[in-house]
Nucleic acid binder design. Structure first.
Lengths: 202, 202
DNA sequence: TTAATTTGGAAACGGTCGTTCCCCAATAGA
DNA sequence: TCTATTGGGGAACGACCGTTTCCAAATTAA
C-alpha cells in the first residue's frame, strides 16, 4: 500500500516541485513581462536546465500560463482570507481596496501585477491569455458587487449606491493602482486613493 | 532667398516626414508593446528600409522614445482643445474623464495607451522611459487638481472635495480604464465608470 | 565640374532567442 | 535482472533579432 492515494507513475521522478519553480517564474514574468523574460532568465531563476524545463512544460507560453494560474490561485487565497476577517460589506470593500493598494507600492508595486501585465502585453494577440484576463477581471468585478450588496443588506452601505456601476469603478481603481505602482509611489499615496474611493460608499 | 526660414542642409534630402513615420510607429508600439514590436514590423509599417530607419534614429529605443513624445504631444493637444470647451471646473473634469473613456473601448481601447504600456513594460528597467511616464502621470494628476480647484472657485464643485486626493483617485481611474480597455469593453461600460466617478464631486 | 555630405535600400553580420536532441540516471513493472 | 518510461542537463539548431555596411542617388558648396 502506497502512503499516497495515487501510485507513482513509471520513469524517473521529478526532482523539483512544479509550484516552487512557478513561484520563481512568477517573479521573472511580473518584473520583465512575457516577451522580455527569456528562457535563459527563467531557467536560471527556476534552477533548471533548459531540457528539464521543456519536459515539464510544452513551451514558453505554457510556462507563462501555468505561472499566471498559480499567481491567481495564491492571490485569490490571500484575498479571501483577508476578506473573511471583515465585519460587514463596507469593511470588506475597504479591505479589498487596501489589498490592492498594499500590492501597489514599493518593491511589490514595481514588480507589478501579472494580470495587468498580461492584459497589456498579451491579451490582444493571444486568446488563451485574453480569456484568463477576462475571467480575472470579471471575478474581481463580481466580488466588489457582491460585497456592496452585502453592505446594502447589513446597513453599512447606503442603498443609493449602485452595486454594478460602483463595482466597475472600483475595478478600474484597482487596475489603475497597479499601473501607478510601477513607478513606485509611496504607501501613503496608494492608500489615500483607497480612502477617497471609499467616499463613494457614503 | 529660401522660402523657408532655415536653409536646407547639405546632402540628399530626407524623402519622408519624420512625424508621419512616427504616427505609424505609434500604432505598432501601442498594439504590440516595445519588445514584441520588431524592427521588421516597424520598417514595414513606416514604409522605410532598415538602413533609412537607422539614419533617422540611433536605435530601436530612440524610435520608441520619439514615438512616445509624438504620442504625448498629439494627445495633449487634443485633450487641451476638448477642455477649452468646458463651461466650468466640474464640466472640465467630466470632459477629461470622458476623453479617457472614449479612448478605452473598441478598436482604440484594444490598441492601448502608450503611457500605460511603457509603465508596465519599460519603466522599471529604463530610466528614460520611467522619467517620461512619471512626467505624464504628474501632468495628468496636476491637471485634475487644477480643474477641481477651478470648480471650487466657480461653485461647480463643493469645497468639501479634497483637490489633491481626488486628483490622485481620478488619475488611478483613468489608468485603470486604459487597462480594462485592452479587453475591449463596450462604450457604455467605459462611460458608466465616468458617471460613477463624477459622484465624487457631488 | 568636383568634392563633401547625406539618404535610400538591400544584403550581410554577430548574437540571442526558443526549442530540440542526445546521453545518462532513476524509477516501475515483468 | 531486463525492459520501458521518464527526468536531468548540456550541447547544438535554425530562425529571427537589432544593427551595420556598402553602394548608388541626390543634394549643397566650392
Amino acid at each position: 500500500m502506497d502512503i499516497n492515494a495515487t501510485t507513482r507513475p513509471p520513469g524517473r521522478p521529478r526532482e523539483f516541485e512544479i509550484e516552487e519553480a512557478l513561484d520563481k517564474a512568477i517573479v521573472v514574468f511580473s518584473e520583465r513581462g512575457y516577451h522580455a523574460a527569456s528562457i535563459s532568465e527563467l531557467k536560471d531563476a527556476m534552477g533548471l536546465a533548459a531540457g528539464s524545463l521543456y519536459k515539464a512544460f510544452k513551451d514558453k507560453k505554457a510556462i507563462f500560463l501555468a505561472s499566471f494560474d498559480r499567481y491567481k490561485q495564491v492571490r485569490n487565497a490571500v484575498l479571501d482570507e483577508e476578506l473573511a476577517g471583515g465585519e460587514n460589506g463596507r469593511d470588506k470593500v475597504s479591505r479589498m481596496l487596501r489589498f490592492y493598494a498594499e500590492a501597489s507600492h514599493g518593491e511589490n508595486g514595481r514588480r507589478g501585477c501579472l494580470v495587468v501585465g498580461t492584459a497589456i502585453e498579451l491579451a490582444v494577440y493571444d486568446a488563451e491569455a485574453a480569456e484568463r484576463v477576462d475571467r480575472s477581471m470579471a471575478r474581481s468585478e463580481a466580488l466588489f458587487e457582491t460585497l456592496i450588496r452585502e453592505g446594502h443588506a447589513d446597513g453599512s452601505i447606503p442603498t443609493t449606491t449602485d452595486p454594478a456601476a460602483t463595482a466597475r469603478l472600483l475595478l478600474s481603481v484597482t487596475q489603475g493602482l497597479r499601473v501607478l505602482g510601477k513607478t513606485g509611489p509611496s504607501r501613503e499615496r496608494a492608500l489615500s486613493v483607497v480612502d477617497t474611493a471609499m467616499r463613494l460608499l457614503d
